[in-house]
Amino acid sequence: MSAIEFGLDTFGGVTKDEHGAPVPHPQVIRDLVDDAVVADQTGLDFFGIGEHHRPDFAVSSPETVLAAIASRTERIRLGSAVTVLSSDDPVRVFERFATLDAVSDGRAEIVAGRGSFIESFPLFGYDLADYEILFEEKLDLLSKLLTEDAVTWTGTTRAALTDQLVFPTTANGLRAWVGVGGSPESVVRAAKHGFGLFLAIIGGAPERFAAYIDLFERAQNEFGRPHAPIAVHSPGLVAATDAQARELAYDGWFAMRRQMGAERGWPAPTASDFENEITDGALYLGSPETVARKIARTLKALRIDRFDLKYDQPVPHTVQRTSIELYGERVVPMVKELLA
């Protein structure tokens, strides 16, 4: 990755129609496919879709949606904004993404993570008491599968493999990342196994993650690994003006934060929290000029190879679509000019 890339991520959050009612899951998924086509047409570099298993997110099988996108796009790279590896099988993950890589002519990527929600663990019969060992062992196996050599592996979370080849093979290998939310142990694990680092910065000042990038680079040196790429993923919304962006996002942002806070024990959000996240935090919200300046500031503070805007804010889909167009057509060119 010789130049900074710019992408979009979505978790397939359920949008609202013009009457404020939730859009049905099938329509949300079809809208995502159309969104990716627009992203490809505006020249963006990556489109990522996350995996969830709960009613407020429509996508439980990102690879299937990405395959549909591959058939309608030409150049944009396609990947999971997270694959919940802990509750999946690494062999099947490799097979599905190798198949996507063939369908897309070499554009597939894997972002493996433990997931920010835990619904998949009981759904697929995994014990949360095994949270750490599941991810450690499965990431270790996935790293071996990515070599596309015969794999011999033993562990406690799945059947052993002996000189096992896995198919289909790929033309040029799969680019793979580990999604990290802020744990130093996860940063070191990604370096140990030779994955790229995909930082989910969803709150607070982005600059505080510079220490994690330093740690990642030091760990790669200590493990004798070549330096892998680093990406940042943060939420945002682009509108015609700062005031319009605030008005469009305000109610949905508060509703989302209250719901997540209730699930995770966070304090109730305040109006100052909203403003602080826009001005100094991880919410890239405003006019194209405002968002471009903030992204450029982040790119100057952090040594990263790709910036992904998580665009599926709790707003109507038409607002999301406008945000995608403004991001690709105006924000990204402005960022490149600011960094030139």
Rank of each mutant, 00 (worst) to 15 (best):
R54S: 08
A171Y: 10
L161I: 04
A231L: 07
T147P: 04
I202R: 14
S86D: 05
S61Y: 11
F195G: 01
E63V: 11
H193S: 03
A108Q: 05
R158W: 08
T157K: 14
A231S: 14
G12W: 06
P62L: 02
D88L: 12
Q41H: 11
G194D: 01
A67T: 13
L8W: 10
F274N: 05
M1D: 10
F97G: 04
L85V: 01
P229I: 00
T270S: 13
T162N: 13
P184L: 03
R189K: 11
S272F: 02
D89L: 02
D280L: 01
S120C: 00
F117M: 08
R330Y: 00
A243H: 09
D163Y: 03
T241K: 08
D163E: 14
D140Q: 11
L309T: 08
P26C: 01
E132K: 12
P226T: 02
G50H: 05
V238S: 06
G224Y: 02
R303P: 00
Q313Y: 02
W177Y: 12
I324V: 11
D35S: 12
T318S: 12
G79V: 03
Y131F: 15
R297H: 14
D45H: 14
Y212F: 15
S2W: 03
H52T: 02
F97K: 05
T10M: 03
P55C: 03
A191D: 01
T170P: 05
E275Y: 05
N172M: 04
S71D: 11
D140Y: 06
D273K: 05
A36R: 04
P269C: 08
E263K: 12
T298A: 15
R30S: 11
T10C: 07
V180E: 06
V188G: 06
T10Y: 06
V315K: 06
A243G: 09
E51A: 06
L283D: 03
E277N: 07
A296S: 12
T83V: 13
M334L: 15
G79M: 03
K310T: 13
I49E: 04
E148M: 05
K16E: 13
D149R: 13
L142W: 10
D127Y: 03
M334T: 12
A211R: 14
P226W: 04
Y250P: 00
D45V: 01
V84L: 11
V37I: 11
P288N: 09
I133P: 01
L139A: 15
E51F: 08
F307R: 07
F198Y: 15
S323Q: 03
E325W: 11
S60V: 00
D308M: 08
V335D: 06
